[in-house]
């Protein structure tokens, strides 16, 4: 494919194939751009952008910039976009943005400016370029990379060195910004245990979710003996996100019916609702630290509760108090 593209770029006018490629991929690139701007979820935006970038890489290739096309894919789509995604993960991948505008007039002004710029640019391009173009056949005669290299290390060598310094500074800066100095000693396990006892927080493992629920999911709260859902049984992260599934009203009588049936089967009298005996009630789970979203979704909530007692859980808790 690269051979054809090279042939295309060598021409002084564009070939039919390139036109087909442009008209196929150009709208796609535009669509990707639109998606980047309009998608409510940042992840979707990032994916749209990645798509646009890949298409642009193809356009670079078509324009005879082979090196840049590859760099575009490797650096931009591969590295930069991945960095974006990492940060998105860090910040919260599932959050959707509201597209409702809060600044009065912002949308209108932005539209006006955008429209104005678009019209002006297109008018400007249409006015300036007069169709004649040289093509890169001569410039790329020794190969695109060699040509770039000879320019980069001769005429632009100073700028090149400076960009090197810039990158170094950026790397150091990013490290500096994200790095946090530990200013106090790590607590030992014993100290943590003592702290928990003194603090009066939940000492035993938290109750497991899904008890009496119809299915055994982590986002379903356990039910107290009287049938009310126990919030504490659901992972704090899910609670924080509002992803706790409600126990349907109908399930409560159903469970009660089941209980009474079981009791009748055993020849006992069914006494509904005295929740005080439950280990769940009275626990002040509200003080429990929120747990990092990436580690929170565990199959077994109990495992997560155990984790919380360890140093690892506390670390995460510190990140998001």
């Amino acid at each position: 494919m690269s051979g054809t593209l090279a042939a295309l770029a060598a021409e002084t006018s564009t070939s039919q194939g390139e036109a087909v490629q442009f008209w196929l991929l150009g709208p796609l690139a535009l669509a990707g751009g639109l998606g980047t701007v309009l998608m409510r979820r940042a992840v979707h935006s990032a994916l749209c952008l990645a798509g646009t970038m890949v298409i642009l890489a193809l356009f670079y290739l078509a324009n005879g910039a082979y090196f840049l096309g590859m760099v575009q894919i490797v650096v931009y789509t591969g590295a930069v976009m991945m960095l974006f995604l990492f940060v998105l993960m860090l910040v919260g991948v599932s959050a959707t943005d509201s597209l409702k505008e809060t600044l009065t007039g912002q949308r209108w002004l932005a539209a006006l400016c955008g429209l104005g710029l678009g019209i002006l640019l297109i008018a400007g391009i249409g006015q300036v370029s007069v169709g004649s173009f040289t093509g890169l056949s001569q410039a790329n005669s020794e190969g695109n990379v060699q040509g770039l290299a000879s320019l980069l290390f001769t005429r632009y060598v100073v700028a090149f060195e400076v960009t090197g310094i810039l990158l170094t500074i950026a790397a150091v800066g990013a490290t500096l910004l994200t790095h946090r100095e530990r200013i106090e000693r790590n607590k030992t396990q014993r100290e943590q245990a003592e702290e928990r006892v003194r603090g009066g927080v939940q000492l035993p493992p938290l109750p497991a979710p899904g008890v009496y629920a119809r299915n055994n999911a982590v986002d379903l709260p356990g039910l107290l003996p009287d049938g009310t859902p126990a919030e504490l049984t659901v992972n704090a992260t899910l609670r924080g996100r509002g992803q706790v599934r409600e126990v349907h009203h109908e399930s409560v009588p159903a469970v009660r019916a089941l209980e009474s049936r079981v009791a009748r089967y055993h020849g006992q009298t069914y006494v509904p609702g005295n929740g005080e005996s439950s280990s769940v009630s009275g626990a002040n789970g509200g003080t429990r630290a929120a747990v990092n979203g990436t580690t929170a979704v565990a199959d077994d909530a109990a495992a997560d509760h155990d984790n919380n007692g360890e140093g690892d859980g506390d670390e995460a808790g510190k990140d998001r108090p």
């Binding site: 751009g33 980047t36 940042a42 998105l88 932005a110 955008g114 710029l117 297109i122 391009i125």
Partner: peptide
């Protein structure tokens, strides 16, 4: 030009810093 304008409008309209 179109992509540039699109990007500019996105900068103005979106609130999520990453976007």
């Amino acid at each position: 030009a179109l992509l540039f304008t699109l990007g500019a409008c996105g900068v103005l309209l979106r609130r999520n810093a990453i976007v």
